[in-house]
């Protein structure tokens, strides 16, 4: 709601896609200020928003992508982070969700400590381990103020059997060599990983059975800008 540029993000699908386009619904949750709006905006509009505002309730963004020749609509539900909105407000939007992205802020330990509560929240809405879930540590560009180390995050993610990614919505290519680098957009790659994972799964409540086999995903295939990104994904547990 807050971004006036939202019509731009949405423009890709204003012309109704063919009826059988599959839709992947992904909900993005985590404490207020961790960067959920920036991450979803980055993925859907391709840039860091110059201004975000507090998300009140639920915002919705989407983008049409092509994976292995199939057009897929990725729907991101960007939720309010303040605790009081969680229980009564956002609950409606947990329904029919295909995947969950948990976000914390690597420069804010409290946002990391809240994760168990968010995971619990998901469980209460019947989104357990059978639904693909990933953990994203945002604001990696702020190297000098990191409070949550990679190892701690990795341990936590392992314990909850989900992959973890550290990134930055602001400057997604800034990680020193860790994640491919080059001109690949790391945030995009993260959401695409989720999409690949979903595509590889058995049909969910999707409008069309998946064509072809799940198999191993080579992320670089969906990218226009070559194979740089693939390196970063070989290590992910997705």
């Amino acid at each position: 709601m807050a971004e006036s540029g939202s019509s731009v993000e949405f423009s890709g699908s204003l012309t109704l896609p063919p009826p059988r386009t599959r839709i992947f619904k992904i909900i993005v949750i985590g404490d207020s200020g961790v960067g959920k709006t920036c991450l979803t905006y980055r993925f859907c509009a391709g840039k860091f928003p110059d201004k975000t505002e507090a998300t009140i309730g639920v915002d919705f963004r989407e983008r049409l992508v092509e994976i292995d020749g199939e057009k897929i609509k990725i729907q991101l539900w960007d939720t309010a982070g303040q605790e009081r909105f969680r229980k009564s407000m956002v609950q409606h939007y947990y329904r029919n969700v295909h995947a969950v992205v948990f976000v914390y802020d690597v420069t804010n330990a409290a946002s990391f400590r809240s994760l168990p509560a968010w995971i619990e929240e998901c469980k209460q809405h019947a989104l357990g381990t059978e639904v693909p879930r990933i953990l994203v540590g945002n604001k990696c560009d702020l190297q000098d103020s990191i409070q949550v180390g990679t190892d701690v995050a990795q341990q936590f993610a392992d314990a909850h059997s989900m992959p973890v990614f550290e990134t930055s919505a602001k400057n997604p290519n800034s990680q020193d060599g860790n994640y491919g680098g080059g001109n690949s957009d790391h945030v995009e790659a993260i959401f695409m990983t989720v999409a690949h994972k979903l595509k590889s799964q058995k049909p969910l409540v999707l409008s069309q059975p998946p064509e072809g086999s799940g198999g191993t995903i080579n992320l670089s295939r969906v990218r226009d800008d070559g194979g740089d990104g693939s390196r970063s994904w070989s290590c992910s547990s997705c």
Binding site: M1, A2, S4, E53, I56, G57, V58, M89, V90, H92, Y93
Partner: peptide, 19 residues
């Protein structure tokens, strides 16, 4: 659709959504 689309209208008296 629910009614959360009107949440910010209500609690900000539309201040959040009008430019």
């Amino acid at each position: 659709v629910g009614n959360i689309f009107a949440l910010s209208w209500l609690i900000t008296w539309f201040g959040h959504v009008l430019s």
